[in-house]
C-alpha cells in the first residue's frame, strides 16, 4: 500500500494501515488462541489488535471511532473478568502446592467461578469483535456476523454448561487416580469450547480483514472524484452508515496525490472539494 496515495492522519501515520494491521493482529491472535495453552499467552494479540483497530478507526469517522472505543471498553471489562476468575485459580494452585491430597470441592470452588466469568468474557469478546468487524461486512456478511455472534457464544455456553455440570458431580469426591482422568477430560472439553469460539471468530475476522483490504485500498488516479464519491455499484446496496467507509474508500481511490484538492469532514469523514464550506453529506461546516 502506498502511503503517498492515501489520506493521512495528522500524526503522519496512515490510519487505515493501522486499522488493517490491527485487524490482522486480531485474526492471528484468534487463530493462535485456538491452540490450548499457547493461545492463552498469545491471545494478547487480540487485545493489541483491537487497540490498533481503535487507533486506525479515525479513518472510518467519528461514529466508528466511538464504537471502536466501546469495543475497547468491552475488552477491558472482559480482561478484568478473566483476571478475576484467573485469580481464584491461581490462589487455588498456590494452596495446592505441595499438597499430597485434595478434594474436588476446593478445586471446583475456584474453577466454577472461573468458568462463570470466562463465559461472560467470551460474550463480551464476541460483542467487541462484532463491533470491530461490523463496518467491514456487507449486508449478507452482516447477517452471518450476527449468526456467528450468537452461534459462537451459544457453542461455548452449551459446552461450559455441560462441563460445569460434570465438574460439579465431582464436588464431594477426593482427587484419586480413578477420577483424575474424568477431571482432565472436563478440562479438555472446556478448552475445546474456547478453541471452537476462537476458531470461528478467527474466520469471521479474517473475512473482515479481507474486506478491509478491499475497502481501504490506496487511491487510483482519476480525472475527478465526483464520479467516485458515491459509486453506483455500491451506493444503492449499502446502508447509510457504511457510506462513510465507501466515501473514504472512493475518495482514496479518486483523490489526487495533492491533498489540497479535498477536505475531509471532521464529523462524518466524507471527502469534499477543497473549496467546499460545508460537508456535502452531513452539512457540517468545514474549515476553510
Amino acid at each position: 500500500m502506498n502511503d503517498m496515495n492515501y489520506p493521512k492522519h495528522q500524526g503522519g501515520r496512515d490510519p487505515s494501515h493501522i486499522l488493517k494491521t490491527g485487524l490482522l493482529m486480531i485474526v492471528v491472535g484468534l487463530f493462535i488462541a485456538v491452540v490450548p495453552g499457547l493461545g492463552a499467552y498469545l491471545s494478547i494479540l487480540i487485545l493489541i489488535g483491537i487497540i490498533f483497530a481503535f487507533l486506525g478507526s479515525k479513518v472510518l469517522g467519528k461514529k466508528y471511532r466511538r464504537n471502536y472505543a466501546i469495543a475497547i471498553l468491552l475488552i477491558i471489562v472482559m480482561s478484568i473478568l478473566e483476571l478475576y476468575g484467573l485469580a481464584d485459580v491461581m490462589t487455588l494452585m498456590s494452596s495446592l502446592y505441595g499438597a499430597t491430597s485434595a478434594n474436588y470441592s476446593e478445586i471446583i470452588k475456584a474453577i466454577d467461578p472461573f468458568i462463570f466469568f470466562v463465559a461472560i468474557a467470551y460474550v463480551l469478546l464476541a460483542g467487541s469483535l462484532t463491533i470491530i468487524a461490523y463496518p467491514f461486512m456487507k449486508n449478507i456478511n452482516k447477517a452471518f456476523l450476527w449468526i456467528f455472534y450468537f452461534l459462537t457464544v451459544i457453542i461455548v455456553l452449551v459446552d461450559f454448561y455441560f462441563q460445569m455440570n460434570q465438574l460439579n458431580q465431582l464436588y464431594y469426591q477426593s482427587v484419586t487416580l480413578n477420577n483424575v482422568g474424568q477431571f482432565t477430560t472436563i478440562s479438555n472439553y472446556i478448552y475445546y469450547g474456547g478453541s471452537a469460539f476462537y476458531f470461528l471468530w478467527g474466520i469471521v475476522m479474517a473475512v473482515a480483514y479481507a474486506n478491509s483490504r478491499k475497502m481501504l485500498q490506496p487511491p487510483i488516479p482519476s480525472p475527478g472524484y465526483q464520479n467516485y464519491f458515491y459509486p453506483t455499484e455500491t451506493r444503492s446496496s449499502q446502508s447509510q452508515e457504511d457510506n462513510n467507509i465507501n466515501n473514504q474508500n472512493n475518495l482514496a481511490r479518486t483523490s489526487t496525490p495533492n491533498q489540497n484538492n479535498i477536505s475531509i469532514c471532521p464529523t462524518c469523514g466524507a471527502a469534499n472539494p477543497i473549496d467546499a464550506r460545508f460537508c456535502q453529506k452531513c452539512g457540517q461546516q468545514l474549515k476553510p
Partner: peptide, 14 residues
C-alpha cells in the same frame, strides 16, 4: 457454581 445461572447471565449479556 450454577451452570444454569452462568448460561442465563451470559445470554442476558449477549
Amino acid at each position: 457454581y450454577s451452570p444454569l445461572i452462568m448460561v442465563f447471565t451470559s445470554l442476558i449479556i449477549l
